[in-house]
C-alpha cells in the first residue's frame, strides 16, 4: 500500500504543465469576468436609456408603487397606497378631513414628518385619499371629501410641510444613473424593435403586442 502511494506522484514536468494550465485558466477566467462585468454595466445603461425613450414616446405609463403593492398582495401582504394632493391645495379642506376625532387623537404632531428633516415646521394638516391609486393620478384641483365608509383604511391627518420636498435626507445621488438617466441625455432615435430587450431581457419580444395589450 505504501509503495502504491509513492508511485502515484506526478512527474515534475507534469506538475509544471499543470500549473501553467491553471495559470492560463485563471487568466482566462479573470478576463472573462472583467469583460462580462463591463458588458453587464453597458447593457444596464442601454436598457435604462431605452426605457426612458419608451416613456418619452408615451406608449404607456407605469407606477412602480403599484407594482410594488400588487406584488406583495399576491404573497399575502395587506398593502395599499394612500396618496394626497399637495398641501397647499387642500388647506381649506382641513375641517372636512378632520372629521374623525379618533384618528386625530392618535396622531402625534411629528407623525408625518418623522422621516423628514427635523428642522421642518408644521404648516397644515394634509388629508389622504385612502384609496388604491392606479396608474397616473393627477393632483386634485378641488379636493373632494372622501367617504370613510368606502375605504378599508381610516383617514389619517398628515401634517405636511409645504414646499419641503422629501429629499432632504436622501443619500447623495450620483450625477448619472444607469437606471435613471438624466433628462439631459442626448436624444436618440427611438427604435421600437429594441423593445424586446426591455420586456424579457432576452430577444423574444415584439413591440406591437406589447403596445396593443395596453
Amino acid at each position: 500500500m505504501d509503495s502504491q502511494w509513492e508511485d502515484l506522484s506526478l512527474p515534475g514536468v507534469w506538475v509544471s504543465l499543470y500549473f501553467g494550465f491553471l495559470g492560463l485558466c485563471s487568466v482566462v477566467t479573470g478576463g472573462c469576468i472583467l469583460f462580462l462585468h463591463w458588458r453587464k454595466n453597458l447593457r444596464r445603461e442601454e436598457r435604462a436609456q431605452e426605457w426612458v425613450e419608451v416613456m418619452r414616446a408615451g406608449a404607456f405609463t407605469y407606477s412602480p408603487l403599484l407594482y410594488w403593492i400588487n406584488k406583495r398582495q399576491q404573497y399575502g401582504m395587506n398593502a395599499a397606497i394612500n396618496t394626497g394632493p399637495p398641501p397647499a391645495v387642500i388647506k381649506t379642506e382641513t375641517e372636512i378631513q378632520n372629521a374623525d376625532p379618533l384618528w386625530e387623537l392618535d396622531i402625534p404632531k411629528s407623525w408625518s414628518y418623522a422621516a423628514q428633516d427635523s428642522s421642518s415646521k408644521v404648516e397644515a394638516p394634509v388629508p389622504l385619499q385612502p384609496a388604491l391609486q392606479v396608474g397616473p393620478q393627477q393632483p386634485l384641483p378641488t379636493p373632494m371629501p372622501q367617504s370613510q365608509a368606502s375605504s378599508p383604511f381610516p383617514i389619517l391627518i398628515f401634517q405636511e410641510v409645504p414646499f419641503a420636498f422629501s429629499l432632504c435626507n436622501l443619500p447623495p445621488m450620483l450625477n448619472h444613473s444607469a437606471s435613471y438617466p438624466l433628462a439631459t441625455c442626448p436624444e436618440r432615435n427611438v427604435h421600437f424593435p429594441s423593445l424586446p430587450t426591455l420586456a424579457h431581457g432576452d430577444h423574444c419580444f415584439n413591440a406591437k403586442p406589447f403596445a396593443s395589450e395596453l
Binding site: 405609463t61 407606477s63 408603487l65 410594488w68 403593492i69 398593502a79 395599499a80 397606497i81 394612500n82 396618496t83 394626497g84 394632493p85 399637495p86 398641501p87 397647499a88 408625518s112 394634509v126 389622504l128 391609486q133 396608474g135 397616473p136 393620478q137 393627477q138 393632483p139 389619517l156 398628515f158 405636511e160 414646499f163 420636498f165 422629501s166 429629499l167
Partner: peptide
Amino acid sequence: AQGPRMVCVV
C-alpha cells in the same frame, strides 16, 4: 404622473 408634492403613504 404624481409629482414631488403629492403625499404618498404606503
